[in-house]
């Protein structure tokens, strides 16, 4: 029966906790200035859902620094190609989406489950709630799954999603985007995010995109990649995803050979 946790959790803290014979990493937290808030007034659905009280800092202990192993048994090779479903080819602009999953220390996250879902080329989701009168595509279900390789790389082939209207405000349209879900290694690293495309004219009016602090918005936008564009087949977009790291160990990393 002692007092409560002796020291408050500090987001920028680095190094490890020792005590009880355990050495636990502390996962860094993105500073408020660049972290998406849970609630954002212009995104109206947050009004009754985003908690109003300040969350309580939770030091990272065993529950937080561990996480489920969700691997190969959840993924089959065809999950990486969203353009071939139900025995036929999906309609729309084929794109290769690829990149790396890293932590903020720059270390690749290997063998990590990446789940994606998206609207079809016309901006319609295969979901009962979606009543946007754009056609459904019998050969597109909008679901993909891949595992990162030993260097943290992922890629999948899909159709460029269309923009779609929603009820947030008059004439509201979501910029084209692909939803991503990642686990990483630890409960603290869990991330659900959205990937956007360069130079979308709809960014300015989209409260979900603009809920990201301005200094971090570029991190949500993929890069057109001519070098991975597949001749006579598909355009390519590159997007690296960065999960929280621990700033613990020195590391060796691949240097991005820059390409014009």
């Amino acid at each position: 029966m002692g007092s409560v946790a002796k020291e408050p959790y500090r987001p920028a803290m680095t190094g490890s906790t020792s005590g009880g014979g355990l050495h636990l990493p502390r996962y860094l937290r993105e500073p408020d200035a660049t972290r998406t808030p849970v609630g954002f007034p212009d995104y109206r659905s947050t009004g009754l859902r985003a908690p109003l009280r300040t969350p309580v800092d939770l030091p990272h202990r065993l529950t937080e620094i561990t996480g489920p192993v969700l691997g190969e048994d959840r993924v089959v090779p065809t999950d990486a190609d969203l353009t071939l479903r139900n025995g036929g080819e999906a309609v729309g602009q084929r794109i290769l989406v690829y990149g790396r999953v890293l932590d903020s220390d720059g270390r690749p996250v290997p063998n990590a489950l990446v789940e994606v879902w998206q609207a079809n080329a016309g901006g319609r989701y295969r979901h009962v709630v979606d009543v946007f009168p754009a056609p459904l595509d019998p050969h597109f279900d909008g679901l993909g799954r891949v595992l990162t390789d030993s260097l943290g790389r992922y890629e999948f082939m899909t159709i460029k999603p269309g923009a779609y209207p929603w009820g947030n405000h008059h004439n509201a349209w979501r910029p084209a985007h692909i939803h991503f879900s990642l686990f990483g290694r630890a409960f603290t690293q869990r991330l659900v995010t959205q990937m956007y495309f360069p130079d979308d004219q709809l960014f300015g009016q989209d409260p979900i995109f603009n809920s990201i602090p301005a200094a971090a918005r570029h991190r949500a936008i993929s890069r057109f990649s001519l070098e991975r564009t597949v001749d006579n087949w598909a355009l390519a977009f590159e997007w690296d995803i960065v999960l929280r790291g621990t700033d613990q160990t020195p590391f060796e990393t691949e240097d991005d050979g820059d390409v014009a």
């Binding site: 993105e30 660049t34 972290r35 998406t36 995104y43 890293l102 932590d103 903020s104 220390d105 720059g106 789940e115 994606v116 879902w117 989701y125 295969r126 979901h127 709630v129 979606d130 279900d141 909008g142 679901l143 993909g144 939803h179 879900s181 991330l191 659900v192 995010t193 959205q194 979900i208 990201i212 602090p213 971090a216 918005r217 991190r219 949500a220 995803i241 960065v242 999960l243 929280r244 790291g245 700033d247 020195p250 590391f251 990393t253």
Partner: peptide
């Protein structure tokens, strides 16, 4: 140490059941 900014979180939206 390389300090990479983390990818911004986003809502799962209404269609999470797909993925």
């Amino acid at each position: 140490p390389l300090r990479l900014g983390t990818s911004p979180s986003a809502t799962v939206g209404p269609y999470l059941a797909i993925g």
